[in-house]
Design a protein around this nucleic acid. Structure first.
Lengths: 212, 212
DNA sequence: ACCTAAATCAAACATTCGTTTGATTTTCAT
DNA sequence: ATGAAAATCAAACGAATGTTTGATTTAGGT
């Protein structure tokens, strides 16, 4: 699907407000006001509020799919280097899409209804899982990594840690006495710390034999 | 605050519905219907929908505060044993309060407004941080743990992993081919795996010197 | 049995919600 | 310049929202 400049503007505003106040907590009038368009333009362009968030998901998830597939092309690297690149790239991707990640976190919590949005999320999770599985299996078959690695929990730690860092970033700032940092300064600080932390955790997890 | 049986019933229903559909996505009529009371009883007992969720937080957070403080009394254990007990107890506490944790995750995402609810969350986070800081510092001063441990990121990995496991448990089930497990069976399976996984991660993190 | 306070109820309240309508303006190829 | 399509608008729509009202029932102490 192609979107006009005005449609992209509405989607951007919707993303901002949904991430701040949630989907149900944001009215189409809120969006229209911030986007400086008439209320009816949202139905006119997207059909409904539900279709608007579907458009947002289609747009953002298509974007990030490209970034994931890029990693599969890596060659001439050790298994650990590939895993490290995967971690770096995941941290960058999620932190750079903070607002959309917040929306996704909320959507993951709302079980029950199987919507188009939940389909998007599931497809993306499958892709992420397959990437990690491929990287780790490669390392195991090459004799580098240990055998009994719990890939699904390792994946949950990767995404859970980054998501939780996003969700509690204000508290993280106060804990580390870095309230003075600007948004962009803090974001690169957090990326750096997260990458180091997660790579260190993963390194132990794929090499050490300290499971019971 | 003391609550009558009927009030506790309303709170329990509200917790269930808030966790499934979110605060804004749940109407007081939904709650009244499931709790089998008249709509006006919610205002009558709690004052408002906002006050209702505040009551829920007061109740649940007071409960869990007791479980946290219990750990501080531990003695005659190695630093690593204490950390392991803290992890076990955190996994149990969060998984056993799955519904409330979902509500908390959503509330953490809604920045902006500083409500009574966000005050509860912040206080609880401070307590959690102080507990972890104490346990780790103890281990460092005893010469067991290494010096440069990033406690705040370690804490984010602990809670982030458990939270993400709760949020994506359906996908985790399909990934591991355990859709046939009952709710309770799955919950104890997940607890077991999470404890093993997190204790292994923490053990490497506090001992190994593989940071850059 | 009586009385008061608590509990319960159906109904109404004023807002806000997402969406539609129908008229008007803008755009742009011809 | 003209005309048809696209874009924009204020206004209205019905449904749903949280809350209040005022009457009625229930409960429990005296």
């Amino acid at each position: 699907m192609e979107y006009s400049a005005k449609q992209l503007q509405i989607i951007a505003v919707a993303e901002k407000l949904f991430s701040k106040k949630g989907f149900e907590g944001t009215s189409v009038r809120d969006i229209a006001e911030v986007a400086e368009v008439n209320v009816s333009m949202i139905s006119y362009y997207f059909g409904s509020k539900d279709k608007l968030i579907e458009a947002l998901f289609e747009l953002r998830i298509t974007e990030s799919r490209l970034r994931i597939e890029h990693i599969l092309l890596l060659e001439d690297l050790t298994p650990l280097q590939k895993v490290n690149i995967m971690i770096d790239s995941t941290v960058d991707r999620l932190i750079d899409n903070e607002q959309f990640q917040k929306i996704m976190m909320r959507e993951q919590l709302s079980s029950e209804r199987t919507t188009i949005v939940s389909k998007y999320i599931r497809d993306m999770k499958i892709r992420n899982s397959e990437l990690m599985k491929r990287l780790i299996t490669e390392g195991q078959e090459a004799g580098y990594f240990r055998k009994n690695i719990d890939m699904s929990l390792l994946s949950i730690t990767l995404y859970g840690t980054i998501h939780h860092a996003i969700a509690t970033q204000d508290y993280y700032k106060t804990l580390n006495n870095i309230e003075h940092l600007s948004g962009e300064e803090f974001r690169s600080f957090l990326k750096m710390r997260l990458k180091r932390h997660l790579k260190s955790l993963f390194k132990s997890a794929v090499f050490n034999e300290n499971h019971t």
